Simulated assay, not measured.
Amino acid sequence: MSLRLRAFDARHPAARAGAAPALQHIELSIAAGERLAVIGPSGAGKTTLMQAMALALPPSAGTLELDGREPWRASRRELQRLRGTLFLAPQLPPLPPRQRVVTAVLAARLPAMSLAASLRSLVYPSDIPAAHDALDRFDLADKLFERVDRLSGGERQRVALARALLAPARLWLIDEPLSALDPVRSLQALQVLLAVARERGVTVVATLHQVELARAHFPRLVGLRDGRVAFDLPAGAVNATHLASLYGDENRSEAGIAADADRSPQAASNFWR
């Protein structure tokens, strides 16, 4: 699925009257099957951008196109259908605490199911082997019948990512997928997601705070600051100057560490300490 934003502004629903849009004049074109990471400081508008791409926020100015069509000009029924072709993994996965993991994972298939089938699946999970296989990719197969509220924060985040493998989606929007994961799990999760996306031709847009992982695993990086695109470059072209400008002088942020990593392999290993 291709995605294009032109002169795109978006305003958060909770924003006070007269406040500047959270996203301003965004120009972005993403080809079908592309893998792109959005980086930037906290409060830059990354989560708002993901919500806008997921058709949860309408534009306050400009346009958004999916495969050349403008969803916000479509009927309500067509808009709902288009939302079913997207998968959004929020930073804090909204998993019902008393639900079993198998049910939570299989819920990713609901957009492609009839109402009767979806209700039935809540009581009698329809494809337990598929849920097991998806969880196994994240080393969570032993949690298949656990309740969600008995999982750690990192396990819940991996359950949310496992849902992507079962979703009938052509665009994955992954918001801070590694925030609760240790370095080993972070690398594993990225490798699984990107490998499956390549196999299926799924378009992936992910927001990340881990600059070095973004540069190592995504061919293209978009820097976002103050709701605007600061740069849009191949990962190999993003250097210490770009990062310093993006993050400013915040105390030894990702920018400073990534700049050190350009010069020193030892500093790169310190990124995770």
Rank of each mutant, 00 (worst) to 15 (best):
P96C: 13
V238A: 05
P94H: 03
A258E: 09
L165C: 07
T103S: 05
R6L: 10
A10C: 10
L173H: 08
L151S: 09
E254G: 12
V196P: 00
N239E: 13
A267H: 10
N270V: 13
G236M: 09
V196M: 05
F231I: 06
Q24D: 05
F271N: 06
A44W: 01
L119W: 14
P13E: 05
R73G: 13
L66V: 07
D127G: 01
V204Q: 03
G40N: 00
D139T: 11
T85M: 06
D9G: 06
A52M: 05
V184S: 05
Q80C: 11
A167P: 05
G68D: 12
V196H: 15
P168Y: 09
I30K: 04
P183C: 11
G33M: 14
E250D: 14
L119V: 11
L166G: 03
A117T: 08
A44K: 02
Q157P: 07
R81H: 14
T63P: 04
N270Q: 14
S29W: 04
S60W: 10
V238G: 03
M53R: 02
R220Q: 12
V229S: 02
L57A: 05
R158G: 00
A244Y: 05
L246F: 03
A235D: 11
A54E: 02
R76E: 14
P265I: 00
A52H: 09
L243M: 06
L110V: 14
H12S: 02
G201H: 13
D133Y: 00
R69C: 11
R11E: 15
N270F: 13
G45H: 01
D142S: 13
L243G: 10
A56T: 09
V184M: 12
I128F: 09
R228V: 08
S264N: 15
R150P: 00
L106Y: 02
F145C: 02
R137D: 04
T241W: 02
G33C: 12
L115A: 13
M53P: 01
V184N: 07
S118P: 04
A37D: 09
L82H: 09
L246R: 07
S114L: 04
Q51K: 15
S60L: 06
R225M: 01
T103F: 00
G18F: 09
P111Q: 06
R252G: 01
M113H: 03
A37L: 14
L5D: 02
S186L: 06
V211T: 13
R77F: 01
V101D: 03
L173Y: 02
E34T: 12
T63I: 07
R156D: 03
Q157R: 11
S126T: 11
G40D: 01
P177D: 04
H132C: 00
V38C: 03
S114R: 11
E70H: 04
S264G: 05
R252H: 12
Q266L: 11
T85Y: 05
A89D: 03
G33L: 06
P177V: 02
S42A: 15
R16I: 03
R252L: 08
A112L: 03
G45E: 01
A22N: 12
L135T: 08
F138S: 02
P96H: 13
D149H: 15
L92M: 03
A116C: 07
A197W: 11
A197S: 12
